[in-house]
């Protein structure tokens, strides 16, 4: 809550300052201790590598982002549809929810090799892996949103003879929107992590060369700065995804939801 009462300039300044301090300390340590770049490259070298290796890194970034985006979209749509199904029929929920939980709690690294083994087309295998980690937050958040509608409003809709469809369309879905968007924000980052982990597991075995592949490759070749550059790009992509989804949520909730309203004077 504290950030809501802060002045906007501080909101950017404070974390920016911390970041600069940390980067400065890192660069200083690398220089004064004479740490060789194959052990730990400094941030300036990493930045240079991002620029110089852009030709290799950027296409890889696009490949990873494509998998991430596809997994995220499937998660969003399927999470929403399943959540609606769950709340329309307790039978469906009881029958399927345990399996959704099992999918969620099984470590991806443990099942990714199997998925990659079974599914010959690697991009699809990666997509499935990324989807496995990304879809649960959407599902569980949306179910929560759909079921925690104001009871009095539900009564009101009943009183005025709303059909099941009307209650869903005009009450449950709008009420669940903030939860759904919250789920998306978590899911976006997870889709990226899922995609990268799956790429790692797939390794060099015929996979298209996503960023994880670049990290592995650079590791084998002891090109540590490039490894760091790839990691940096993954983090940057994650931050970007989060920022875009936050912006989307702000746009969608706009004037009505408390979470998107700045404290007034």
């Amino acid at each position: 809550m504290a950030s809501r009462t802060m002045r906007p300039s501080y909101r950017v300044l404070a974390p920016g300052l911390i970041g600069l301090l940390a980067l400065g300390a890192w660069e200083g340590m690398v220089r004064w201790q004479g740490i060789p770049p194959y052990i730990l490259p400094g941030p300036i070298l990493i930045a240079r590598t991002v620029v110089s290796d852009w030709g290799t890194l950027f296409p890889s970034l696009l490949i990873t982002l494509a998998i991430t985006a596809a997994a995220f979209l499937v998660s969003a749509v399927l999470g929403l549809v399943l959540a609606i199904l769950f709340t329309q029929s307790p039978w469906i929920e009881r029958a399927l929810f345990p399996y959704a939980v099992i999918l969620q709690v099984t470590p991806l690294v443990a099942i990714a090799p199997l998925i990659i083994l079974w599914i010959k087309w690697i991009p699809l295998a990666l997509l499935i892996c990324a989807w496995l980690v990304a879809f649960f937050p959407v599902l569980s958040n949306t179910v929560l949103g759909l079921t925690s509608t104001d009871r009095n409003l539900v009564d009101l809709f009943r009183l005025y003879g709303a059909t099941r469809w009307q209650a869903l369309r005009y009450l449950r879905l709008p009420a669940a929107l903030p939860y759904f968007l919250g789920g998306l924000r978590i899911s976006g980052g997870l889709a990226l992590i899922g995609a990268v982990v799956a790429e790692f597991v797939a390794g060099t075995g015929g996979a298209q060369s996503g960023l994880a592949f670049r990290i592995l490759e650079a590791g084998y070749q002891l090109q540590i700065p490039r490894m760091f550059a790839a990691v940096f790009l993954i983090s940057a992509a994650g931050v970007l995804i989060f920022a875009v989804l936050t912006g989307l949520s702000r746009l969608a909730l706009g004037r009505w939801h408390e979470s998107e309203i700045d404290a007034e004077g």
Binding site: N152, L156, W256
Partner: peptide, 8 residues
């Protein structure tokens, strides 16, 4: 409670 739809 007023029981209004906050999004409307």
């Amino acid at each position: 409670e007023p029981t209004l739809m906050p999004w409307a």
